[in-house]
Design a protein around this nucleic acid. Structure first.
Lengths: 342, 342
DNA sequence: CTCAATCATGGTAGCGCTACCATTTGTCTG
DNA sequence: CAGACAAATGGTAGCGCTACCATGATTGAG
């Protein structure tokens, strides 16, 4: 004898309202919306009319509960302000904007523990796919990914042992290529400057080191790093530190473009000629690298494409066509500019 | 005689499992998790133990369906890569990271239609709160916000007619202040350079114009704008256009710091002395403004705080204590630097 | 010591949707 | 033209959780 809970939903139309108005069963409305091919032309039109008239929008919560699958992409990135991840995320958004999938972003703040916590939270939603930055998950996070029951794409890097799929490039090779370029240009005392030494930065450093060692020029005093988050002003400071430590420095491979810009500005200020006295190479090739004076050589990475490609792979897997190539290396390009042209 | 749908959920524990293990009713588990104060110390511990042992995580979809309210903050921004919004979003994330609320971001791409569409989608989820950038919603979007049935915070700007709450500052005043500073420094032929002339940019331009007119110095040929998205390289190009149009230019107020940086680089390249020949002012005061050579005067805005403050206001409203002051002006500060010191 | 008020706990009935059948209708084969 | 089969539609029973009410235990006032 309980009366129905008088529309706690706040009165928005439900699938039953649409069904009534269209004179069909609720399930047919559901089908018309999700698998239009399985409903006759006639009914489909009728139902669409009812939907439009009522302004019906399916409740994703009810949908997820009933189908045990939410139309959500979970995305885990270590930072929201870092331009690099922002571009990846933009690629993901653009690729999904016309799909029914929503996006849930988690910010791990470069913390493995936080990543685990967020995977736990995401998992409880039964997402349609997970896209996570990096390949260095904790064992526990890796287990959560393996048991997620949905396609998983690790992005930003490639590596030997994907949880499921991967899209990225080799940071080691990027670091090595940048350093070799400086060597070929005739620089010898080449420093490495890096902030926020996350795993990707570490691998770029390793690439730098490999190149320097191969040339018999590696010296630990050439390396200046800090765990502090990267910024242009930090780049300037680190460069000053590096110069103080090693006044004969004649080149720097900067872990990213912000740092490189900071270096460039400090050179201006200290009247150090770039590229004559010091060669500068950045990483990522942000727009401003080509504009700065002098323009800065940088390693161009395909961040937006990493986003779009990872979505494409996940969508294919959801549709039942997991891509044959589970690890996609999008590579990078060294863009030579004035800052290393001497 | 239908057997239950053998755990379509994929076997993760439900509230019933926890209840059984703890020897209590399901509803008590639900309460222990949401309103611990209403469950006795004893049971609470027992339940917590069962939760930990089973690794139970509540299903947010079921929760949202049953309570007609999702623990989701909907956030609508016009761009994901624009540093300004990225900072606001970061503030929002940081403020909510310890709460049960998830965040759903929508990218409107500066389009009113897209904003409407996203509000529709968000609305179907019954979010706990909505945070939207800007105050220039279409009438239809405004209606959607008014009927959202949850706290709404408009951010980035302040204005006379909030849907519910507002956090921001006056872009008009910002533009005027920047321009007045240039005037006071003795510059006369002051140009305005702006890309992506969204409503906020328009108001900064209006502020610039007001200051110039008050000084009897306004000339439409001093204004150079484009609807193209902003970038450092675009700043350089627009500055060249501006100079070509008005070779006697002796100052520029740039609609944002990217543009200002592009202007600075072009000045370097063309051997134009900043600040002697040309004064440059930016907007937002990104980190690099203080590092560049010369350092660039800019209008510092409190982007991160806009994010944190908007969340605080929304949370208060959710808790039933809507803030007395519904429109919060966080202001801005003109930071004087070398680029206008002549 | 009684009775009302309070507190702690539980049962039931949905929230809005879809998976899983069942049913009806039309279509083709032999 | 019967029988088999596919296509189109519908009914029922949950998905996992919480709102609402009911119940029993405890407390305090008179």
């Amino acid at each position: 004898m309980t009366r129905p809970r008088s529309r706690r939903g706040g009165g928005r139309p439900t699938i039953a309202d649409v069904a009534r108005k269209a004179g069909v069963g609720a399930i047919t409305v559901s089908r018309a919306l999700r698998e239009p091919g399985r409903v006759s032309e006639d009914l489909r039109r009728q139902i669409q009319a009812a939907v439009d008239e009522l302004g019906y929008v399916p409740d994703p919560n009810a949908r997820a509960l009933a189908s045990a699958r939410a139309e959500v992409f979970g995305v885990l990135v270590p930072s929201l302000t870092n331009n690099v991840f922002a571009e990846v995320v933009r690629g993901i958004y653009d690729s999904l904007s016309d799909s029914p999938f929503r996006i849930q972003i988690g910010n791990t703040h470069y913390s493995g523990l936080e990543e685990e916590r967020l995977l736990q939270v995401f998992g409880s939603q039964r997402p349609a796919a997970l896209i996570v930055a990096g390949i260095d998950q904790t064992p526990s996070a890796r287990r959560l990914l393996e048991n997620a029951g949905c396609p998983v794409v690790q992005v930003m890097e490639t590596g030997p042992d994907p949880v499921d799929m991967m899209v990225g490039f080799s940071h080691f090779d990027g670091g090595r290529t940048a350093t070799e370029h400086l060597l070929q240009a005739g620089y010898r005392k080449i420093g490495f400057i890096g902030a926020r030494m996350d795993p990707r930065s570490q691998r770029r450093l390793a690439g730098y080191r490999a190149a320097m060692e191969a040339a018999g020029l590696f010296d630990p005093r050439l390396v200046t790093t800090t765990p502090v988050p990267s910024s242009v002003s930090l780049g300037r400071e680190l460069f000053r530190d590096a110069l103080a430590k090693m006044p004969t420095l004649d080149g720097v491979f900067c872990n990213n473009d912000d740092i490189a810009l900071g270096v460039l500005f400090e050179c201006h200020r200290a009247s150090i000629d770039v590229p004559k006295q010091i060669g500068v190479v950045g990483f990522n090739d942000l727009d401003m690298m080509q504009v700065s004076f002098p323009s800065i050589t940088s390693v161009r990475t395909h961040r937006y494409e990493i986003g779009t490609r990872s979505v494409a792979m996940a969508l294919a897997a959801i549709a039942g066509n997991p891509p044959e190539q589970r690890v996609v290396d999008l590579g990078f390009e060294l863009v030579r500019r004035e800052s290393t042209a001497r």
